[in-house]
């Protein structure tokens, strides 16, 4: 008697969000099964991989990243090269130079970079802020305007600044709103409700439910995503059916395992291999837990994760 497996297909499904424009536009979400459970039902839209670039250029990047971008002198060069990275589906521009505790670049300067990048590439774009709430409110509102017509994801609107960013991105300039919460299903849902109440359609919202690197309280990330997908699919909770996008690069390359130099930890071996490993492991884990898109930075990570997705689909 052969194995009689019951299908785990759900009646509800994750919403579909399309970003970018023209032929290169991509869709995320839409599935009615758990991540990669293609044996239950086909998954229409494979998870997508984005490449993160920073307005601060390449100076702080590991050697393998620098080597990939060799010869790039302008942000336009870097953006083009990122869009062409094998395995990449989209580009994420992080405006970290705007951080008042860092370079404190003006919003105008940052918008010059946004324009330069938009003009350089035709793949979909995600625009991320500097994580300073006050600055991001101004920066991302303006970025929504500057990127008009490009259907970008604005990452992200948080509980503190969702009104301004949500209204600009989601209502005034027709972009997609990234809703960022801190690793908690209730906070994620609450923010979706709040942004919806502004009048933003669910098909214009993606969730960034918070992340950590493997080894650093990552169980909360797994359980938050597991519970969100369970609520969205088995209980048909419309306020949790937005697809999930997870920036991995920043977190993964900022832990001790990736930062400690080989001189400090000789037994740990090559530093860059450790960074790639933290990035790959974290990305694979958030994808297996339900992320519909990840944002990475190292060419090896992008190639590996994109290949893994293809193999599993």
């Amino acid at each position: 008697m052969p194995f009689n497996g019951k299908s785990g297909k759900f009646n509800a499904s994750i919403g579909t969000v399309e970003f970018g424009c023209g032929e290169k536009a991509i869709k995320i979400g839409g599935e009615n099964v758990l991540p990669f459970y293609t044996f239950d039902a086909p998954i229409e839209n494979a998870p997508k991989v984005g490449v993160m670039i920073s307005d601060l250029g390449l100076e702080a990047e590991p050697a393998g990243v620098k080597a990939y971008y060799e010869g790039c002198t302008t942000m336009a060069d870097i953006a083009k090269k990122a869009a062409a990275m094998p395995g990449a589906d989209f580009v994420c521009l992080k405006l970290e130079g705007a951080d008042p505790n860092g370079e404190n670049k003006s919003t105008e300067d940052c918008m010059t970079v946004v324009k330069e990048v938009i003009d350089a590439i035709d793949v979909p774009l995600v625009i991320a802020g500097c994580k300073n709430v006050t600055k991001d409110a101004e920066l991302l509102t303006k970025a929504s305007e500057v990127a008009q017509g490009k259907n970008v994801i604005i990452l992200a609107a948080k509980e503190e600044d969702y009104k301004g960013i949500g209204a600009a991105a989601g209502l005034a300039y027709n972009q997609k709103v990234g809703a960022e919460s801190a690793v908690d299903i209730n906070l994620a849902k609450q923010l979706n409700v709040l942004i919806s109440q502004l009048g933003v359609a669910p098909s214009n919202i993606v969730m960034h439910v918070g992340t950590a690197t493997v080894g650093y309280g990552f169980e909360y990330v797994v359980s938050t995503m597991d519970r969100i997908k369970a609520a969205a699919l088995s209980q048909n909770d419309a306020q949790l059916q937005m697809p999930i996008i997870t920036p991995v690069a920043d977190e993964a390359w900022n832990v001790k395992e990736a930062m400690a130099s080989e001189e400090d930890m000789p037994e740990w071996g090559a530093q860059e291999a450790r960074g790639v490993s933290m990035e790959v492991s974290t990305a694979a884990s958030v994808l297996a837990s339900g992320s519909n898109a990840v944002i990475l930075k190292h060419p090896t990570s992008v190639a590996t994760i994109s290949k893994m997705i293809k193999e599993l689909m």
Binding site: V214, S277, A284, S285, T304, M308, L312
Partner: peptide, 9 residues
């Protein structure tokens, strides 16, 4: 790299 990704999964 793929073994690390899959081991995580």
């Amino acid at each position: 790299a793929m073994q690390i990704a899959l081991a995580s999964v």
